[in-house]
Amino acid sequence: MSFPTTHQPRGATGRTIVVLDERESTAQEVLHGLGVPCVHARDLGPGAIGTAGTLPAGSAVVLDALGIAILEDASDLVSEAAQDPRAAVVTAEPEVWVHAFTEAPEPTTPLADTDASTWGLLATGVVGPDGVATAWDGSGVLVAVLDTGVDEAHPDLAGRIALSRSFVAGEAVHDANGHGTHVAGTIAGAQAPAGGQRRFGVAPGSDLLVGKVLGDGGSGTSGGVLEGMNWAVEQGAHVISMSLGSAVGEGQGYLHYYEAAARAALAAGSLIIAAAGNEGRRPVGSPANCPSVMAVAALDQRLLRAEFSCIALNGDGGELNLAGPGVGVYSSWPVALGSYRSLDGTSMATPHVSGLAALAVQANGVRGQALWDRLVAGVRPLSEDEQLVGSGLAVAPTAG
């Protein structure tokens, strides 16, 4: 079985993503003024944005909810406008390849699951030591999963998928990779899984928006991720879970288009939660390194930083915010590939936190920045410092 961490395209795709200042005019008017014809994301077919080279030469596609446009070929005028403080182009940055942050566990990785629950649910207080689950299940909360899609036929996700859409050209939402199905299961897997399996879903009452932004090979583009984010915000997602990203060098800043998108999402009440990355003692990856994106580190069964989990070496958004269980995580897997599997990765820690965020929305009636603040305030302190694990372990909310 292949995992989406090797032999993947890296670096820039060749396209350009611009953040537009729309205070005085629409994004379309700004681009037309620079001689760039544009279309709107909603008018294109699935995958037209997420696959480099599919837009007409010299054109741009506008993500209306985010104030962002993606250009197939960046003109000199656009580049010059980005340097002019009087122009309506705030930044112009390269689109980059993104991939899922997953590690294949060693065969000898010990698990501390019980017959009734995974160790991650026990550690986060979703299930108590006495086996009694929290009263909250995420009912009424909409969580967007931007990943490799989902196996919609999986019995433990039945009734949980409110809406799905593929943003990958030529590929259906169906997850032939496994990563997205695993993530979705950790967030919203059934409270009583099929066949007597132990419970692994944090918020089994939540509803999922499944956006396929990574292909079955585990890769996609930042433009495709932005399209998925735009869609999730338009659909009113309370939480946007992104177990994906790109590696970042020491001293390298965040991509401004991701930060602009995250700010727009947060203002609309959608909290973006993203994986810190699996590069070990390297900086938190992108887009988790944005100030307005909640960055999640991975813990092992000892509640210590997993050795692969990226650390906070860069400032100005490159910090870790909190941590979740990320080693030996048991969850759903495409039925045709075995139905269940254990994986390691910050990709596994992130949906734990996303599910806990859904519980907090239900329990406390908060969203956006208030939800962020509630999650951080409620963490369980850990023995390692913030550079390694953020503020602490995310846990289930208490009443009130």
Score class of each variant (00 low, 15 high):
Ala274Gly: 08
Ala276Leu: 01
Leu303Tyr: 14
Cys310Pro: 04
Pro291Glu: 11
Val284Thr: 11
Glu279Met: 13
Leu303Lys: 14
Ala275Thr: 04
Val296Tyr: 05
Ala312Met: 01
Pro283Gly: 11
Ser286Gln: 14
Ala295Met: 03
Ile311Pro: 04
Leu304Thr: 13
Ala306Pro: 08
Ala276Asn: 03
Leu299Cys: 04
Asn314Pro: 10
Ala288Gln: 03
Pro291Gln: 13
Asp316Thr: 13
Cys310Leu: 09
Arg282Lys: 13
Phe308Trp: 02
Asp300Gly: 14
Cys310Asn: 15
Pro283Thr: 00
Gly315Ser: 12
Val296Arg: 05
Val293His: 12
Ser309Pro: 04
Leu299Thr: 06
Arg305Met: 02
Val296Met: 04
Leu304Trp: 14
Ser292Met: 12
Leu303Ile: 11
Asn314Val: 00
Leu303Cys: 14
Arg282Asp: 14
Ala295Glu: 03
Ser309Cys: 09
Pro287Ser: 08
Leu304Ser: 15
Pro291Ala: 11
Ser286Trp: 07
Ile272Asp: 04
Arg281Phe: 09
Leu299Tyr: 00
Ile273Glu: 09
Ala297Asp: 01
Pro287Ala: 10
Asp316Phe: 12
Gly315Gln: 07
Val284Tyr: 08
Ala275Glu: 00
Asn314Tyr: 08
Gly277Ile: 07
Gln301Phe: 13
Ala276Trp: 02
Leu303Met: 15
Asn314Cys: 11
Cys310Gln: 15
Asn314Ala: 11
Ile273Phe: 10
Gly277Gln: 02
Arg305Ile: 06
Ile272Cys: 00
Ile311His: 00
Ile273His: 08
Gln301Cys: 13
Glu279Ile: 09
Ala312Leu: 04
Arg281Gln: 14
Asn278Tyr: 01
Asn278Pro: 01
Cys290His: 05
Ala276Asp: 01
Leu304Pro: 09
Pro287Trp: 00
Gln301Pro: 07
Ala297Gly: 03
Gly277Asn: 03
Arg282Gln: 15
Ala288Leu: 11
Asn278Val: 01
Gly280Ile: 06
Ala288Phe: 09
Ser286Val: 13
Gln301Leu: 14
Asp316Ser: 14
Met294Tyr: 07
Gly277Glu: 04
Phe308Pro: 05
Asn314Met: 05
Cys290Tyr: 08
Ser286Arg: 13
Ile311Thr: 15
Ile273Cys: 07
Arg302Ile: 11
Ala288Arg: 08
Ala298Leu: 06
Val296Lys: 05
Ala274Pro: 08
Val284Gly: 05
Leu303Asp: 14
Val296Gln: 00
Ala297Val: 04
Ala312Arg: 07
Ala295Phe: 00
Asn314Thr: 06
Gly280Cys: 06
Val293Thr: 08
Pro287Asn: 11
